Simulated scan of single mutants.
Amino acid sequence: MDDRLSVRAAPAAPAAPPVPIDEAGIQALVHGFYGRVAEDALLGPIFARQIGEGGWPDHLDKMCAFWSSVLLRTGRYGGRPMPPHLRLAGELSDAHFERWLGLFRETARAELSAEAAAGVIAMAERIANSFRLAVAFHRGDDTTRMRPLPAG
């Protein structure tokens, strides 16, 4: 008789159901969201400085590709989204992440079906919390006591 404990791999968690969205929905979401960001008193100046006046078309294309890759698994985005955010670590605070999420939620709910909005908002919340944690860690903050941003 073997007295050692047998360790078995836990069954894989079921895959998250796909978000009911298509490329047209992603484009409406991204363009609507960044239209709000550009006009926002807190976020607008940061984006304007980083993207520049003539850089918006390229940025919007890149963000459409990013969300297409995240939501539809198209593989259209081949970039690295974290480094640009880490370069801004000294000026980003929870207020920036909260405002970003607030505008994203508003836009998703305005542009998408309730079911699609819920799916993209859940993904955006995970991404925002991940980026927020990475930015804080990069700054040297004590991230062990950070709590996730409130879901909305």
Rank of each mutant, 00 (worst) to 15 (best):
M1Q: 01
D2P: 14
R4A: 07
V7L: 09
R8E: 11
A10R: 14
P11F: 14
A12G: 04
A12C: 08
A12S: 13
A12T: 12
A15L: 11
P17I: 06
D22F: 00
E23I: 13
A24S: 13
G25C: 07
Q27H: 10
A28T: 07
V30T: 07
H31A: 09
G35I: 01
G35V: 01
R36T: 02
R36A: 10
V37Q: 02
E39L: 08
A41K: 00
A41C: 00
L43W: 00
G44N: 01
G44R: 00
I46D: 02
F47H: 09
R49H: 10
G52L: 06
G52V: 04
E53L: 14
G55Y: 08
G55I: 05
W56F: 05
W56Q: 04
W56I: 06
P57L: 10
P57D: 08
L60D: 11
K62L: 13
A65P: 08
A65H: 14
S69Q: 01
V70Y: 08
L71K: 09
L72N: 06
R73K: 15
G75L: 09
G75M: 11
R76F: 03
G78K: 03
G79C: 03
G79Q: 04
M82H: 08
M82A: 15
P84N: 06
P84Q: 05
L86P: 14
L88Y: 02
G90C: 13
G90M: 14
E91W: 02
L92G: 05
S93I: 11
H96T: 05
E98T: 11
E98Q: 13
E98D: 10
W100V: 03
L101P: 02
L101F: 07
G102E: 02
L103F: 01
R105W: 07
T107N: 11
A108F: 07
R109F: 03
E111W: 02
L112Q: 06
S113K: 05
A114Y: 00
E115T: 10
A116H: 11
V120R: 04
M123E: 14
A124N: 06
A124G: 09
E125M: 14
I127N: 02
A128S: 14
A128T: 06
N129L: 05
S130C: 14
F137Q: 13
H138R: 15
H138C: 13
R139E: 05
D142T: 08
T143L: 10
T144Q: 13
R145N: 09
R145V: 11
R145E: 10
M146G: 08
P148Y: 11
A151P: 07
